[in-house]
Design a protein around this nucleic acid. Structure first.
Lengths: 192, 192
DNA sequence: TTTGCAATATACAGACCTGTCTGTTATAGT
DNA sequence: ACTATAACAGACAGGTCTGTATATTGCAAA
């Protein structure tokens, strides 16, 4: 038995899992360029050769970090209970408040990474682009189902408010953010 | 004659001016940690000893960069023609569109810097805080003069939309941003 | 048992980083 | 003319960065 494990590059290798978890924490807490490979492998308890067996370069690790955060976000949205479009939008925007009250919020990982990767053709930036397209289009579809006359414009505004309030939770007063989320949704959606 | 020039540390020393201009360009284009002192002094045509005569450390140069961007932004707002509070708000928010159409937009320099400086007690973060407080309070005062029933909340929403649309101009479609600015102001102010 | 693979530890190359130091040149004030 | 200042050029120290190489250990399948 034992199932077939791990020919070549097991996606679920314990070492790889530990590397990605550690990198996720350190990249998010300290910034990407500021955290070196040596520190990641030391805290993950993994040899350097093992790291380079799983990831061809540091940038590929960064891409894996971004893509996993994207995947987790999409899964969380997909797991939301089905309800009316209007309530779905409120629930998605409400996730901003959830991220804040958890504590240790250091800003949106995608915006933080984009600040460190100026080249729009880089793999990191492409991964960030995919995330943003998904987020915008998800909101746009819900708005269309809700009867919004200009769902794409409203979606862009909701994206902007999301980004802005996530930054505000990092740089300003986190406690005020949940109320601001509700207020923003109310003003941008109501009586159109 | 010649006026009294430059005892000790002339704030307007040509070398210092060149250093700060070059650092501003390189930090903004490439990110802060990604740009080294050696490159800055090479492109500025300044000796390393001269650099360390004007700035005690690289972080102090970063602070000078942030503070100057803040100062320029405040001056631009102060130079706006006096008009009704409502129009002043529209003009301030309209500066977002102006930054975008100029081309070469690489995101808000303050948000980009904050992404690279996790320590909220650092001088860089304090400079960013000061900027954000000024921006929020400026909008809040204008909103109060305009009769907004909750000027602080509306100001926070306008700050969030500003941050979000500046990021959108960097990561999404810059051409759509001017229209989104107008739409956001209309929805946040007219329907409160 | 034998073979193959994943992981270990460690050392190294070559580049780059910040910051210090020495020494020289030019200019401007007294 | 003399002195102080600011800039120049460039070497250097000590550390960190990414990525490669070497050599060894443990395990699991055939």
């Amino acid at each position: 038995m034992k199932a077939k494990i791990s020919r070549s590059h097991p996606e679920a290798s314990p070492a790889r899992r530990r590397l990605l978890d550690t990198a996720t924490r350190l990249f998010y807490e300290g910034g990407i360029h500021a955290v070196g490979i040596d520190r990641i492998i030391a805290e993950a308890g993994v040899a350097k050769a093992t790291f380079y067996n799983h990831f061809p370069s540091k940038d590929e690790l960064v891409v894996a970090y971004i893509e996993e955060q994207d995947r987790l976000g999409r899964a969380a949205v997909a797991a939301l209970p089905k309800q009316s479009p209007r309530k779905m939008i409120a629930a998605i925007m409400g996730r901003i408040s959830g991220a804040v009250v958890a504590g240790g919020w250091r800003g949106c990982p995608f915006l933080n990474a984009a600040a460190e990767y100026p080249d729009p053709t880089s793999l990191v930036r492409r991964a960030i682009d995919a995330r943003r397209v998904w987020y915008h289009d998800s909101l746009r579809d819900l708005l269309a189902a809700d009867g919004d006359p200009s769902p794409s414009v409203t979606a862009s505004l909701l994206v902007a408010v999301s980004d802005g309030l996530l930054e505000s939770a990092y740089l300003d007063n986190p406690e005020t953010v949940p109320a601001l989320v509700r207020e923003a949704v109310a003003r941008l959606l109501d009586r159109r």
